[in-house]
Protein backbone atom coordinates (compact mmCIF):
# COMPACT_ATOMS: atom_id res chain seq x y z
CA UNK A 1 0.00 0.00 0.00
CA UNK A 2 2.80 2.43 0.75
CA UNK A 3 3.78 2.94 -2.86
CA UNK A 4 0.32 4.32 -3.23
CA UNK A 5 0.65 6.32 -0.10
CA UNK A 6 3.78 8.14 -1.12
CA UNK A 7 2.83 9.00 -4.63
CA UNK A 8 3.14 12.50 -5.92
CA UNK A 9 -0.38 13.68 -5.19
CA UNK A 10 -0.26 13.00 -1.47
CA UNK A 11 3.31 14.15 -1.01
CA UNK A 12 2.40 17.33 -2.81
CA UNK A 13 -0.46 18.01 -0.40
CA UNK A 14 1.93 17.26 2.46
CA UNK A 15 4.60 19.67 1.29
CA UNK A 16 2.21 22.33 -0.03
CA UNK A 17 -0.99 21.99 1.94
CA UNK A 18 -4.13 23.71 0.74
CA UNK A 19 -5.83 26.19 3.05
CA UNK A 20 -3.11 26.10 5.65
CA UNK A 21 -3.75 28.56 8.46
CA UNK A 22 -6.54 29.81 10.68
CA UNK A 23 -9.85 31.40 9.69
CA UNK A 24 -10.81 34.38 11.78
CA UNK A 25 -13.57 34.71 12.68
CA UNK A 26 -14.79 31.13 12.38
CA UNK A 27 -17.98 29.26 13.19
CA UNK A 28 -16.08 26.05 13.88
CA UNK A 29 -12.80 26.08 15.77
CA UNK A 30 -11.37 22.84 17.09
CA UNK A 31 -8.10 21.22 18.02
CA UNK A 32 -7.67 17.47 18.05
CA UNK A 33 -4.76 15.14 18.39
CA UNK A 34 -3.87 11.51 18.00
CA UNK A 35 -1.94 10.92 21.18
CA UNK A 36 -0.56 7.57 20.06
CA UNK A 37 1.33 9.10 17.18
CA UNK A 38 1.53 12.78 17.93
CA UNK A 39 -0.56 13.97 14.99
CA UNK A 40 -2.19 17.28 15.86
CA UNK A 41 -4.64 19.42 13.96
CA UNK A 42 -6.29 22.81 14.48
CA UNK A 43 -9.23 23.19 12.15
CA UNK A 44 -11.39 26.26 11.57
CA UNK A 45 -14.42 26.58 9.29
CA UNK A 46 -16.96 29.18 8.31
CA UNK A 47 -20.55 28.46 7.24
CA UNK A 48 -22.58 30.40 4.68
CA UNK A 49 -26.05 31.85 5.15
CA UNK A 50 -27.63 28.47 4.36
CA UNK A 51 -25.48 26.75 6.94
CA UNK A 52 -23.28 25.03 4.36
CA UNK A 53 -19.54 24.98 4.71
CA UNK A 54 -18.09 28.03 2.98
CA UNK A 55 -14.40 27.74 3.87
CA UNK A 56 -12.10 25.52 5.89
CA UNK A 57 -8.52 26.02 7.04
CA UNK A 58 -6.21 23.84 9.07
CA UNK A 59 -2.85 23.88 10.67
CA UNK A 60 -1.02 21.10 12.45
CA UNK A 61 1.69 18.52 12.50
CA UNK A 62 1.71 14.91 11.53
CA UNK A 63 2.47 12.24 9.01
CA UNK A 64 1.79 12.39 5.29
CA UNK A 65 -1.51 10.60 5.71
CA UNK A 66 -2.94 12.92 8.34
CA UNK A 67 -1.70 16.14 6.76
CA UNK A 68 -2.55 15.25 3.17
CA UNK A 69 -6.01 14.11 4.27
CA UNK A 70 -6.55 17.39 6.10
CA UNK A 71 -5.39 19.40 3.14
CA UNK A 72 -7.64 17.54 0.74
CA UNK A 73 -10.55 17.69 3.13
CA UNK A 74 -10.42 21.48 3.33
CA UNK A 75 -11.17 21.46 -0.41
CA UNK A 76 -13.66 18.61 -0.37
CA UNK A 77 -15.85 19.99 2.39
CA UNK A 78 -16.74 23.29 0.75
CA UNK A 79 -20.44 23.44 -0.11
CA UNK A 80 -21.43 20.51 2.11
CA UNK A 81 -24.14 20.66 4.74
CA UNK A 82 -23.11 19.60 8.27
CA UNK A 83 -25.31 16.47 8.01
CA UNK A 84 -23.52 15.50 4.80
CA UNK A 85 -20.18 15.86 6.54
CA UNK A 86 -21.46 13.77 9.40
CA UNK A 87 -22.33 10.94 7.01
CA UNK A 88 -18.82 10.82 5.58
CA UNK A 89 -16.68 7.88 6.60
CA UNK A 90 -13.42 6.10 5.90
CA UNK A 91 -14.43 5.12 2.38
CA UNK A 92 -15.05 8.72 1.46
CA UNK A 93 -11.69 9.73 2.84
CA UNK A 94 -9.94 6.94 0.95
CA UNK A 95 -11.68 7.97 -2.22
CA UNK A 96 -10.85 11.60 -1.64
CA UNK A 97 -7.20 10.56 -1.29
CA UNK A 98 -7.23 9.10 -4.77
CA UNK A 99 -8.49 5.64 -3.92
CA UNK A 100 -5.77 4.56 -1.49
CA UNK A 101 -6.44 1.55 0.67
CA UNK A 102 -5.28 2.50 4.15
CA UNK A 103 -3.76 -0.10 6.42
CA UNK A 104 -5.25 -0.52 9.87
CA UNK A 105 -2.51 1.49 11.52
CA UNK A 106 -3.03 4.52 9.31
CA UNK A 107 -6.81 4.80 9.46
CA UNK A 108 -6.79 7.03 12.51
CA UNK A 109 -4.25 9.34 10.88
CA UNK A 110 -6.45 9.73 7.83
CA UNK A 111 -9.61 10.22 9.87
CA UNK A 112 -8.23 12.85 12.24
CA UNK A 113 -9.31 15.88 10.21
CA UNK A 114 -12.76 14.50 9.39
CA UNK A 115 -13.34 13.51 13.01
CA UNK A 116 -12.19 16.96 14.08
CA UNK A 117 -14.62 18.59 11.64
CA UNK A 118 -17.53 16.52 12.92
CA UNK A 119 -16.66 17.23 16.54
CA UNK A 120 -16.21 20.92 15.76
CA UNK A 121 -19.60 21.10 14.08
CA UNK A 122 -21.17 19.35 17.06
CA UNK A 123 -19.45 21.69 19.54
CA UNK A 124 -20.71 24.66 17.53
CA UNK A 125 -24.26 23.33 17.71
CA UNK A 126 -24.46 22.77 13.97
CA UNK A 127 -25.12 19.06 14.33
CA UNK A 128 -27.61 17.23 16.47
Amino acid sequence: MSHDLYREQLLDHYHNPANYGVLEPADVDIEMDNPTCGDRIHLTARLDSEGHIAAVMFEGQGCVVSMAAASMLTEALVGKAPEEVNRMGLEDVEEMMGGVKLSMGRVKCAMLSLNATKQGLRDAGKLA
Binding site: S2, L5, Y6, T36, C37, G38, V65
Partner: peptide
Protein backbone atom coordinates in the same frame (compact mmCIF):
# COMPACT_ATOMS: atom_id res chain seq x y z
CA UNK B 1 9.46 13.18 8.22
CA UNK B 2 6.97 11.77 10.68
CA UNK B 3 8.00 8.41 12.22
CA UNK B 4 4.86 6.81 10.76
CA UNK B 5 6.01 7.69 7.31
CA UNK B 6 9.47 6.32 8.02
CA UNK B 7 7.91 3.02 9.11
CA UNK B 8 5.64 2.86 6.08
CA UNK B 9 8.45 3.51 3.61
CA UNK B 10 10.66 0.95 5.37
CA UNK B 11 7.83 -1.55 5.26
CA UNK B 12 7.95 -1.35 1.48
CA UNK B 13 11.53 -2.61 1.77
CA UNK B 14 10.57 -5.49 4.05
CA UNK B 15 11.95 -3.72 7.12
CA UNK B 16 9.92 -3.73 10.35
CA UNK B 17 10.55 -0.84 12.74
CA UNK B 18 8.34 0.63 15.42
CA UNK B 19 6.98 4.16 15.07
CA UNK B 20 5.18 6.13 17.73
CA UNK B 21 5.88 6.71 21.39
CA UNK B 22 6.57 3.02 22.13
CA UNK B 23 4.36 3.10 25.24
CA UNK B 24 6.64 5.70 26.80
CA UNK B 25 5.08 9.11 26.33
CA UNK B 26 6.81 10.99 29.17
CA UNK B 27 10.30 10.27 27.83
CA UNK B 28 9.26 11.58 24.41
Amino acid sequence: VHPHDIASVLDEEGICVRAGHHCAQPIH
